[in-house]
């Protein structure tokens, strides 16, 4: 039996011309040959990987919702040929072929879509996925945003990569203008102390080196967990009570919302002063996606925290 398998393998080796199965077989196939053809480029992505890009990138697979949103915002949806099952924005993205989930996308589905480039993010994907795709001869470009500024940089990087640098610069300028106008409004406001909870049971918050920490800052708040060095630290409830934040901020994800509509009735949480006073803010779940919509979320949070800084809008609402 083993002998039979060995013959099969050696036949495949012959097919591959030379070398070891995983690495060289991919390199010898025409798929890579076209990729390595004329005018290919070599770039270094945001995670430090060297990426060999084909001259023209016509078919893109996105491995995370924020990347899907970036591609739509850049008007590149025509080139997007595959998304994950979590890519639900804009709604049209749901019509694209699905390659599996963010943590473990299906390699076969990706290959079948014949992508020129796969886009990944450290905020969701695993390095192993990128490694596996690379060995199969499919270039992977990874983004690694740790602040709103990084998100804008990632948008520009992706735009440059795909030959639409002007659109990237345009989007960047538009988002930047909104942020700076917000920044001016919030120039003199006092900064309330907020606790951002990604998950409540157990309590998981955001550390200092995350784009969420920066998002809170840009919205005129101060994260009470901003000193923590871990990205997604687990916090004990006593510490949360001791930190005594002015506001509790939560993403409006399905799992959280359905379980926690009556936060005030829950034992440890009702003794948190922010909950007692009803100072709980639910944000659109785009807050968890380092993509173009984060600016909207920053604005929304700023309005909730500092209504006094938005007099015209408040008047218009009434």
């Amino acid at each position: 039996m083993f002998a039979t398998l060995m013959t099969t393998e050696s036949a495949i080796r012959r097919l591959a011309a030379s070398g070891t199965l995983g690495i060289c077989l991919a390199a010898s196939l025409p798929l890579t040959a076209t990729a390595a053809g004329n005018q290919s480029r070599t770039v270094v992505d945001e995670t430090g990987r060297t990426v060999h890009l084909p001259a023209r990138i016509e078919r893109i697979v996105s491995l995370a919702p924020n990347l899907t949103e970036i591609l739509y915002a850049l008007g590149l949806e025509e080139r997007l040929v595959g998304v994950t099952n979590q890519c639900d924005y804009p709604p049209a993205a749901r019509q694209k072929p699905i390659v599996g989930d963010v943590v473990n996308p299906n390699l076969e589905e990706i290959i079948e879509l014949k992508p020129d480039l796969v886009l990944g993010t450290t905020a969701g994907n695993r390095r192993e996925t990128a490694d596996a795709l690379e060995r199969l001869g499919i270039p992977v470009y990874g983004i690694d945003p740790h602040s709103i500024e990084d998100v804008l940089t990632s948008i520009r990087n992706v735009a440059d990569l795909l030959g639409v640098a002007e659109r990237g610069a345009e989007l960047d300028a538009r988002l930047r203008a909104r942020l700076s106008s917000l920044h001016q409004r919030l120039n003199a406001v006092p900064r309330p102390r907020v606790l951002f909870a990604i998950w409540l049971d157990p309590l998981i918050t955001v550390g200092g080196d995350t784009f969420l920490n920066d998002l809170l800052r840009q919205a005129g708040a101060r994260s009470v967990t901003g000193e923590l060095r871990l990205d997604w630290p687990r916090l004990s409830l006593e510490v949360a009570l001791e930190l005594d934040p002015d506001y509790l901020v939560l993403p409006r994800t399905h799992s959280l919302r359905s379980r926690l509509t009556d936060l005030s009735g829950r034992r440890p949480w009702q003794s948190l002063r922010a909950v007692e006073r009803g100072q709980v803010i639910w944000l659109d779940d785009a807050v968890l996606r380092p993509g173009p919509r984060v600016v909207e979320v920053v604005e929304a949070l700023a309005r909730e925290l500092h209504p006094e800084a938005f007099p015209a809008t408040e008047a218009a609402r009434q």
Partner: peptide, 28 residues
């Protein structure tokens, strides 16, 4: 607790038992 979020995903996934990644070296 000390791993960054992206490494953690890989580690917890691997801990559960996983054959999905292509092996980084020859099967021989």
């Amino acid at each position: 607790n000390f791993l960054s979020a992206s490494d953690l995903r890989g580690a917890t996934f691997w801990l559960m038992g996983d054959l999905s990644g292509t092996a980084p070296f020859s099967l021989a």
